[in-house]
Design a protein around this nucleic acid. Structure first.
Lengths: 266, 266
DNA sequence: AAGTGGTCTAGACCACTTT
DNA sequence: AAGTGGTCTAGACCACTTC
């Protein structure tokens, strides 16, 4: 808990109390940041620390304003940004809740593959393999670990309406996902990130994908029921939790004969 | 210019004046929208009408507040959203400007292909072909026209550091881009959307892309210097201007041997 | 009735830019 | 010095939810 602004830098009488709230900790950082950003950072720290867990209600804006000695409007602006980043969800009349991956609306936020037709798609996951391996140089780099560190490897196939469409390899840091077993994965219903969140206390916040066109290798061709060299979408994903800490690496091969990857540019 | 809220629906004394500003037009819409959304819509209408052109300064928040008979804070919230949608750019101390495609920062907003390495990429465009054609059924559907309507077709190749990477076909509504010639395209420096904006008064706001993996046809293989059936990224883009009116359709074939399409999930 | 987020106003001071 | 957007406060009323 700290405020980065000193009264001398930001001689705003309104801020005096807020600065006092962080009293005792002299900040070495010379960079300015507005009060609401500092409040946002404070709330984010508490989210990260698990003070309020996914799905739970956080204190009201008035309550937080009192706690941090700032006006409700300032807390509001802080929470506005947290809501824009999907860390938190507002519900009028009820309050503000910590975002969770256990919601129908969140199911498709991280799967951008859409059917060309508008027929309903019954998704189905099949776990092919789960094993503990040593991190390769590339996996170690992506997950911010050392080469040879323990990593959990998952291979699965996602089908739509019974037709295999995605072959996906997933690498997870062994230290974080210690007790993860094939049995648990097979029996679990719902999105993987929901499992990570509720059983391993690791909430995925943000991801980046790198997309390429590749030819199917014999292995992939077998799983997807196509001939080798069939063009496939290669989707490499790096997932991050609080503080941009990497927590997952994926590589998916998407069959895009009757599906497409949807991207919004704005 | 209209307000969708009647005093009886929104009995906020603060709004009374704002409602009066739209006086004379009875609104049939029964849906509620907050004042700042109405202000936002009003400003958007003026942007669309070209009252303030791209790159120009729009009136200050105080000025607009006076004009619409609402407080500066309400105008601010309206402009906040317009800025978030990239319709407008704020500059502290200067004012708020209509966004434009003639800015270095905007150059890469609509090209998500990145080099795998971090070597500098010298881009280069080569116009292959420009011709007037009749809209096929699919083009007509995408551009919201009738089959057979006049369409301008452009084919070009984009190279990085002298190596051809993208073959792109572009379809434009003939009615909007009437005077567009191959000569003008060849001599024009800078992003295509900049040309559209300053010479045809059509500003692209938003786009959607559908991505697939395909095998190179002989034609494409020739332009990109690869063998037929080489996997390529097929990127179909639909571009929209104000009011979600389609103004462009594209189909790019990206060679992703040393490049990748970058996508942020959040 | 009480509490919550959602909207709106009014006024103040700040940092930045231009005159 | 004057004008602009950026931040912060304080207070009001609203719509929605729960008790």
């Amino acid at each position: 808990m700290k405020f980065e602004v000193m009264s001398s830098i930001l001689p705003n009488s309104n801020n005096a109390d807020a600065q006092a709230a962080g009293a005792g900790i002299a900040s070495p950082a010379p960079t300015f940041s507005p009060l609401y950003q500092q409040i946002k950072a404070l709330i984010m720290q508490r989210l990260e620390a698990g003070e309020w867990k996914p799905g739970e209600l956080i204190p009201s804006e008035v309550e937080l304003g009192g706690r941090f000695k700032v006006s409700q409007g300032t807390v509001r602006k802080a929470i506005d940004e947290l809501a824009a980043e999907n860390l938190v969800v507002r519900r009028q009349g009820k309050g503000t809740f910590v975002a969770t991956h256990h919601e129908t609306q969140a199911q498709f936020r991280f799967l951008r593959l859409m059917a060309d037709s508008d027929e309903p798609q019954r998704p189905e996951n099949k776990i092919i393999e789960v094993k503990r391996v040593r991190a390769s140089a590339e996996v170690a780099r992506q997950l911010d670990m050392k080469s040879g560190d323990s990593v959990i490897f998952i291979r699965r196939v996602k089908s739509f309406n019974g037709v295999p469409i995605i072959l996906e390899d997933i690498w997870l840091p062994g230290a974080i996902f210690k007790g993860l077993t094939a049995e648990r994965l097979v029996e679990y219903r719902g999105p993987l990130y929901g499992l990570f969140e509720s059983e391993f206390g690791t909430r995925m916040i943000r991801a980046e994908e790198r997309i390429r066109a590749v030819g199917a290798d014999p292995d992939a061709a077998g799983f997807l029921g196509v001939t080798p060299q069939t063009p496939l979408l290669s989707v490499e994903r790096a997932s991050y939790t609080y503080g941009d800490k990497p927590v997952e690496m994926r590589r998916g091969l998407y069959l895009t004969t009757n599906h497409h990857y949807q991207s919004e540019l704005s």
